[in-house]
Nucleic acid binder design. Sequence first.
DNA 1: CCTCTACACCTAGACCATCAAGGTATGAAC
DNA 2: GTTCATACCTTGATGGTCTAGGTGTAGAGG
Lengths: 108, 108
Amino acid sequence: MNDLPPGALDLLVLQTLRAGALHGYALARRIQAASDDVLTIEEGTLYPALHRMERQGWLEAAWDRTDTGRRAKFYSITRSGRARLKKARTVWERTNAAIARVLEAEPA
Amino acid sequence: MNDLPPGALDLLVLQTLRAGALHGYALARRIQAASDDVLTIEEGTLYPALHRMERQGWLEAAWDRTDTGRRAKFYSITRSGRARLKKARTVWERTNAAIARVLEAEPA
DNA sequence: CCTCTACACCTAGACCATCAAGGTATGAAC
DNA sequence: GTTCATACCTTGATGGTCTAGGTGTAGAGG
């Protein structure tokens, strides 16, 4: 539906988890809400990404129960994940600003 | 070197060509300069992308000579390409703003 | 009780753009 | 006559996203 640019997902996930651990499903809804429904995270995108980020040591996972008593895997950001977030954010802002400069360069 | 997000290249190329036809090599340098050397367009990325955009009817190509007398393939943006640019730009701005909203959502 | 919806997780395969790493050829300069 | 910048191209690998499935649980409504 959405065409989220690769790399952006890491940023969104890490940033969102800074506020506290969430399970995947809630994470997707949180991001969607925070973006005013512009960004939709497909589950087929999200879960592999979470696994990848866990392998990379940016996230830690733990099974727990939701408020409503359901089993769910809660992800929290690690120290390494915070460092990664900071770096990814810098790169994103830098790239973004560069693209904006090109887009604002006035054509004839 | 650079990790240009997929999709962004179309935007950069179309926008840059709005100012007038350019051949691939010059286009790459132009974008790099316009972005203050932040964005580097690899040739292995650029040429296939130009061919793709030509197939899609967004660009037209014509062999000609550069100022220095070299043969080069000059690309110009078509009407359809301008429409595409406008659309891609809207999507990009929208997505960008959405990501920015998520990044600015204050964590605890 | 039964069915439907929302929750919550997962994977396999296809797709596609980027990138790395090559290769060809011309003109100018030294 | 070799080297450099110009200018084009392709092949193969990589890797993240998306499509399209699948599993199972809990609660609500009929």
